[in-house]
Design a binder for these strands. Structure first.
Lengths: 188, 188
DNA sequence: CTATTTACGTCAACTATATTGACATAAATC
DNA sequence: GATTTATGTCAATATAGTTGACGTAAATAG
C-alpha cells in the first residue's frame, strides 16, 4: 500500500485528471477561485511534507523545532546564533530550549568564534549530521518523486514558483543563504 | 516599501537571476542538491504565506488554528465535525477549544443535521464569512502576484506541483474536497 | 581607557496548540 | 434492546512559542 515502486504505476489516474483540470483552470490567467484552490493545495502539501519527518523525529524524542535547528545548522555549519534566529524567526529564549537539548544529546556542538569570540558557532556532530541526512532524505525523496511525476517542462517551474512565494524583500537573503549552503555542502 | 504596485518594477532582478539558476539546476533531472534547495524554499515560502494571515488574525485575538477552521467552514458550509477533524488532522478536543471560541464570538454557527440529528453542521455567520474572505484575499493576492510574475507556461505547473506534493493516498480526498468547495463557492 | 554596544545566556511567567485517556449523551442502526 | 456513531467535556500533559527583565563577556566607539 505504501510501496514506492508501485505508486508510479498505480496512481497516475488522479494526476492525469488533475493535470487536465489545472491546465483548464490556469489556461490564461489565474482566477480568484483558482487561487483559493492553490491556498488549500499549499496547506495540504505542506502538511504532508512535514509529516514525513515528524514520524522519524519521534524516535529521537525530538519535534519540528529540533528538526529546523538541526537542518539549518547542518546545511550551514558554523552558523551563529543570531543568524539562526533570523532564519527561524523565533526568539532566542525559544531557540535556547531546543538548542540546549540538541547540544546535550550530542547532535550539535558550539565552538567559540575565531573572529568574534562572543559568537557561538554551531556545527553538527557526526551523529547530528547523520540524523540531518536521514531527515533530508525523506523530504528530498518526496521532491524527487514529484519531479519524476511532473512533465519535464514543469520541473524548473516548481522552484521558480516557490521562490516567488517568498516575500520579495526576503528573496535576496534566501538566495544568499542557499548559495552559502550550497558552497558548504559541496566541500566534504 | 510595501507598495504592491512598486514591486513589479523594483524587484525582478532577483527573480530573473533566480529563474536562470533554477533552469540550470533543473535542466535535465533534479539533483539531490536541487531537492535540498526545494526543501528550504518550501519552508520559507510557507513561512511567509501564513505570515500574512497571522498579522490580520491578531486584530481579532485569533490564531492559526482559528484561521484553518474558519477557512474550511467557509469554503464548505455545512461541514460536519468529523469531516473537519479529518481535514485538519487534529483531535476533537483540540478542535473544540478553537471552535467554541469561534462559535461564542459569532464567526461560526452550528446547526443540527437534518438527515442525522447527531451531527452539528458548521456554517460561517456573515461576520465569519467576511473575515474568511479578508484572510483569503491576503493569501490569494500572494498567489495572483506570483502567477503574474511567473512566465505563463509555469502557471499551471504550480498547481500540478502542489498537488503532486500531497501524499498519493490523500489526493483523491483532496480533489473531492476541492470540487465540493468549488461547487459551494459558485452558488452565492 | 572608559563607555557603549553587541552576542549571547538565563530565569520567570504566560499563551497557543496540540496530545492522551476517560467518561457522558443522544441519535442512528443492527 | 443492544450497539455503534457523532459529538461534548474534564483533566493532565507536552511542545513551541511569547514578553520582560537581568547578567556577562567581548567588541567597538569616543
Amino acid at each position: 500500500m505504501n510501496d514506492l515502486s508501485a505508486r508510479k504505476i498505480a496512481e497516475p489516474a488522479a494526476v492525469v485528471a488533475w493535470r487536465r483540470a489545472a491546465a483548464e483552470a490556469a489556461a490564461t490567467t489565474t482566477s480568484d477561485e483558482g487561487a483559493l484552490e492553490l491556498v488549500e493545495l499549499f496547506f495540504f502539501a505542506y502538511r504532508d511534507f512535514v509529516g514525513d519527518a515528524d514520524r522519524l523525529l519521534e524516535n529521537y524524542g525530538f519535534g519540528r523545532a529540533h528538526h529546523r535547528v538541526l537542518h539549518f545548522v547542518s546545511r550551514r555549519p558554523g552558523l551563529a546564533i543570531a543568524a539562526l534566529l533570523e532564519i527561524l524567526r523565533i526568539t532566542k529564549q525559544s531557540l535556547n530550549r531546543v538548542l540546549k537539548q540538541l547540544l546535550e544529546a550530542g547532535f550539535v556542538e558550539a565552538r567559540e568564534g575565531v573572529l568574534d569570540r562572543r559568537q557561538r558557532l554551531l556545527y553538527p556532530t557526526p551523529q547530528g549530521a547523520k540524523l540531518a541526512r536521514d531527515l533530508a532524505a525523506l523530504q528530498t525523496a518526496r521532491f524527487l518523486k514529484v519531479m519524476d511525476e511532473l512533465p519535464p517542462a514543469a520541473r524548473g517551474a516548481a522552484s521558480e514558483f516557490l521562490f516567488a512565494m517568498i516575500d520579495s524583500d526576503e528573496r535576496e537573503r534566501v538566495r544568499a543563504h542557499l548559495a552559502c549552503a550550497k558552497a558548504a555542502g559541496a566541500a566534504p
